[in-house]
């Protein structure tokens, strides 16, 4: 509380700016018309109710998809594609970040030299650029180069998460204890040895924890990227919605939520191993 008073002008302008942003944004958002009925109309909620009933299978004559063993097997196969895409993406992003993170840490390369600071600035600039663009937009760009599929989706996810992990990694590296590194240096270790034996052991546990945490995010997003990269649960979800196969949509949503929860539990378990 004391700090709030000491920094009163800044905090005052922050609150004012937030206030203006909220008012302006809501005015902008509510001022935009849509083709659907307003959210607070009876019609809108009837439509939503119909949609939920369709998901539950009320509109279909045959048996709903989630009651069919074959449909489950197919959905689980798609889930395995989505899982593979997320693991591949996390791995590629981690490799990219680990290979570049040393250049983004000012305590390793930036100290005093113009070239070093420029290198740090450049690497961080790459991180910011890759991180600012959402995975789905990267997917739109990536499919110009790579054939749609698991790999294209994984690359799109990896580009964004490379920036996220790189930035986190640089922050971890800058917070390391310099003593072990100095001890290695005075005993004549070379640059690569300093990184491998001085920096990496300090950084890796925390980095892996963040990687696993990020993987939980990636698996949620894999579904969305699958829309563009034409693979996994996301692609099928879009197709089924387009053809009004609502019980198939419901089945895919169930499998999606199960996959996300499975990933969360697995990630918690693996994070225990990382420490």
């Amino acid at each position: 509380m004391i700090s709030l008073i000491r920094h009163r002008p800044f905090m005052f302008s922050t609150v004012l700016l937030l206030f203006v942003l909220v008012i302006g944004s809501w005015a902008r958002v509510l001022g935009q018309g849509g083709t659907g009925p307003g959210l607070f109309t009876v019609e809108a909620w009837q439509r939503a109710g119909d949609f939920v009933a369709d998901l539950a299978g009320s509109g279909e004559s045959g048996s709903p998809a989630f009651a069919s063993w074959d449909a489950w097997r197919e959905a689980l196969r798609l889930a395995s594609d989505t899982l593979a895409m997320s693991v591949l993406a996390a791995g590629l992003a981690a490799i990219g970040a680990l290979l570049t993170v040393a250049f983004a840490a000012s305590n390793l390369v930036g100290r005093g030299s113009v070239l070093g600071s420029a290198l740090v600035g450049f690497t961080r600039g790459v991180y910011v650029l890759t991180r600012s663009v959402p995975e789905l937009v990267w997917a739109l760009i990536v499919v110009f180069v790579f054939s749609p599929g698991i790999l294209a989706g994984a690359i799109a996810l990896a580009i964004h998460n490379f920036g996220v992990l790189g930035r986190l990694g640089a922050e971890i590296v800058e917070d390391i204890d310099p003593a072990p590194v100095d001890a290695l240096r005075t005993s004549g270790a070379g640059r690569v040895q300093l990184l491998l034996y001085g920096v990496l052991p300090q950084v890796l546990p925390q980095f892996v924890t963040f990687l696993l945490y990020r993987w939980e995010v990636i698996i949620r997003t894999s579904v969305v990227v699958g829309l563009v990269a034409a693979s996994g649960l996301g692609y099928q979800l879009n197709l089924d919605l387009a053809f009004f196969r609502y019980t198939d949509v419901a089945l895919l949503l169930i499998v999606y939520v199960l996959l996300v929860w499975f990933a969360d539990i697995l990630s918690i378990g693996l994070r225990k191993l990382a420490r």
């Binding site: 958002v29 509510l30 935009q32 849509g34 083709t35 659907g36 009925p37 307003g38 959210l39 809108a44 439509r47 939503a48 949609f51 939920v52 789905l136 949620r220 997003t221 579904v223 969305v224 829309l227 979800l237 879009n238 919605l241 949503l253 999606y256 939520v257 996300v260 929860w261």
Partner: peptide
């Protein structure tokens, strides 16, 4: 558990295209 874009797709399917769907 459900990604924001999946929510968006569901909201648009349920409510139709409206700014409120995006906000929610």
């Amino acid at each position: 558990a459900v990604h924001e874009i999946v929510w968006a797709i569901l909201f648009v399917a349920a409510f139709g295209l409206s700014p409120a769907a995006g906000v929610l």
